[in-house]
């Protein structure tokens, strides 16, 4: 049994390798986050961020054609030994897709399986909406259809839905992709408030170094499915040890490609 809410959960990934039909997506990645901490998985597209996040909540194993080796320990327990129901309850992966028509039901949908009394559900919906900073905006039209075309509203409602059950581990897979800078700030602010509540450990996948620096104390830089370097945000941004991290952070793509090419050649027998 995982520690129940409102306790955050630790995550440890040991030698995770993910293969699919077209090749290796994640290469022997090991990393850990202490309970209540934040980690940004930073890297460009196809660096393996999503696969690691999906592996953490067990969803990746359900994707056909994926072969996964290594271990994912949540709260010290191998995720294979945790029931799917408990895993879904305690590990929340934000999926920015609408599941319902009204703000209320969008959030409440995640509470359905708990079969709590209606009053308790309403209280939890309000708590989640307040935490993501939407309560004032939607309280008068909780039961009316909302504008699904508003990406900020949709994303914040999905965030409220994900946290309504107080997951001990919150996984965000490039959650502000495509948002403008002010909406991004609003979303990041909501996550900072969630973190301050202390019930969740947060892993945030992002392509933007700026965002990684703003939201996480620890950063892991991934490139081509490989964990290149990890450390405190301050150390990594000021003095990265690996030339690939340096090239990514300074935007020196020619050097990054050249270094990645030579890395590939070295690893081939």
């Amino acid at each position: 049994m995982l520690t129940p809410p409102p306790q955050p959960l630790s995550l440890e990934i040991k030698e995770l390798t993910v293969r699919c039909r077209d090749g290796i997506r994640v290469k022997n990645v090991s990393l850990s986050v202490t309970a209540g901490g934040t980690l940004a998985l930073m890297g460009p597209v196809n660096s393996g961020k999503s696969e690691i996040l999906w592996a953490a909540n067990g969803l990746l194993a359900e994707v056909p054609g994926m072969s996964i080796t290594g271990q994912v320990l949540i709260d010290g327990i191998d995720n294979h030994n945790i029931s799917v129901k408990e895993l879904r309850h305690r590990v929340g992966l934000l999926i920015p897709v609408s599941l319902s028509r009204t703000p209320y039901s969008e959030v409440a949908v995640s509470l359905r399986s708990l079969s709590s009394p209606a009053q308790e559900v309403a209280a939890k919906v309000e708590w989640a909406l307040r935490l993501v900073g939407l309560w004032k905006e939607v309280r008068d039209r909780l039961h009316q259809p909302y504008n699904h075309a508003d990406p900020t509203l949709l994303r914040l409602l999905c965030l409220a839905r994900t946290i309504a059950r107080q997951p001990g581990l919150l996984l965000l897979d490039d959650p502000t992709r495509g948002l403008d800078s002010i909406s991004r700030a609003r979303f990041e602010d909501a996550v900072v408030r969630i973190l301050a509540e202390g019930f969740a450990t947060i892993i945030w996948g992002t392509r933007e170094p700026d965002q990684a620096g703003r939201v996480a104390g620890q950063i892991a830089f991934l490139y081509n499915g490989e964990l290149v370097e990890s450390g405190s945000a301050r150390c990594l941004f000021e003095f990265p040890r690996d030339p690939r991290t340096e090239s990514f952070l300074t935007g020196d793509y020619r050097r990054l490609y050249a270094l990645a090419g030579s890395e590939k050649r070295r690893s081939q027998p």
Binding site: P209, D210, F237, E238, F239, P240, T245, E246, L249, T250
Partner: peptide, 9 residues
């Protein structure tokens, strides 16, 4: 340009 790493230094 928000320089980072070697550029920041």
């Amino acid at each position: 340009k928000r320089p980072l790493a070697g550029d920041l230094r």
